[in-house]
Each structure stands twice: as structure tokens, then as C-alpha cells.
Design a binder for these strands. Sequence first.
DNA 1: GCGACAG
DNA 2: ATCTTGTCGC
Length: 230
Amino acid sequence: MPHIDARADEDDLWPTDAEGAERVQQRLAERVRVETLPAAQVSLVAGVDVSYAADDSALVAAVTVLDTASLRLVEAQVEVARPRFPYVPGLLAFREVPPLLKALERLECEPDVYLCDGFGLAHPRRFGLACHLGVLLERPTLGVAKSAFVGRATDPGAERGAATDLVDDGEVIGRVLRTRTGVKPVYVSTGHRVDLAGACDLVLRLCPRYRLPEPIRHADQLSRARLAER
DNA sequence: GCGACAG
DNA sequence: ATCTTGTCGC
């Protein structure tokens, strides 16, 4: 059960317009902290994802929690709702975080880290979905995106584990990581209270067989299945 | 000004 | 994101 940071409740966290949303990002971005996440302390890993109906009339936000060592499913929760914010590149969190928080509130266990489908610091204002969720939960988060957004990088080697820096404005904002030999790489970036190297190590550990981390795959399948049931 | 643009 | 099955390849 997540606890929303008291300070974050003071003002309007969910503006309806893009201008207000960007101001919220600039304000909350100051709270992001990059810290090391001891691998020994990660026993429960959560994956979050959101699926949408083709006509955008409904969405299903899902969270799945896996035991890091065995990769067995420990718990799963969903939130069915109607989209309240349009998809705008750079403002994805305003569309997905509200329903995700609802699903997370139903969780009985406490994940040690949350893997998000999207970016963290690798964002125009250095405050992507993973940072947003992490700051509101005040919990460790990281982002794993399937395609490029901001920054430049050279292609990592073809072997699993190969990685290159994602650079923007002279700063390393993430890593392009090959999780499967010969398969398109993923984009890993810090969300909150984790460091880039630790995030990449964890992501690689969670990808023993597929391109995407197991927690995210499970959340994706669950959200999609619940959407189809309607 | 024009195109690109996480999910 | 979503519309969509089978199929080629390791």
C-alpha cells in the first residue's frame, strides 16, 4: 500500500492542461534522488503497465509482483478506468500514473523496486513516468522503454548484456541495453532512488528469456487480458 | 517553419 | 497504445 508524499498533496498534482502538467514536472523533478540500490535488498520486484481500448474508452492499469530469485508471481492487482488525460509525448505520466496508483493501493505486499514501461530521467525535463511514480511513492523505480525518445546513443554489441550510454546535452541519461542476443535493445533509465548501473544489472537479471523484464511482461499480459474480458 | 515524438 | 495469424529462423 503506497503512501503518497504529504508534500505532494499540497497543490494540484493533476492539472488538465499541458502547461500546468509541465510545471508540475519541473517542480517534482527536484525531488528525484539517484542512489545505489543494494541487490541484496531486492527480493520483491514489481512491474507496471497500462493497456488501452482501441477507441480509448477504457484502460486497465496492472501491477504484478515477482519474487526476484525465483521469478514466481507473488501478487497482482488491476484498476479499470477511463483515460483522463490524452497521450502527449513527454506527459505520459499524467495519463498513466493516476490509474496505476489505484492498482498499487490494492497491493498487500511491499515491492522493493518498481519497473515501469517507459522512461525515467531520459526525458525532456528529466522527469519521465518512472521518476513521477517514484517521487509520489517515495520508493525505488526505474524505466524500461522499448523505443527511443530523447538522447543519442551508438548501437550496443549484438551480445546479451552489451550496452551503450544514452546521452543528451552532454549528460548520460540512460543506457541502451541488449537483454537478448540479436534482439532489439531496450532503453533503461533511472526513476528514483536507484542508480543506472544497478538498474541495468537488475533489468538483465529479470530478462533470462525474453527481451522485456519478467515483471513488466506479466503486467502487460494481465492488463491486456483484463481489457479483453470487457 | 517542419517533422519527430515513451505508451 | 491498438488494428492482427501465421510463419520464417535459430
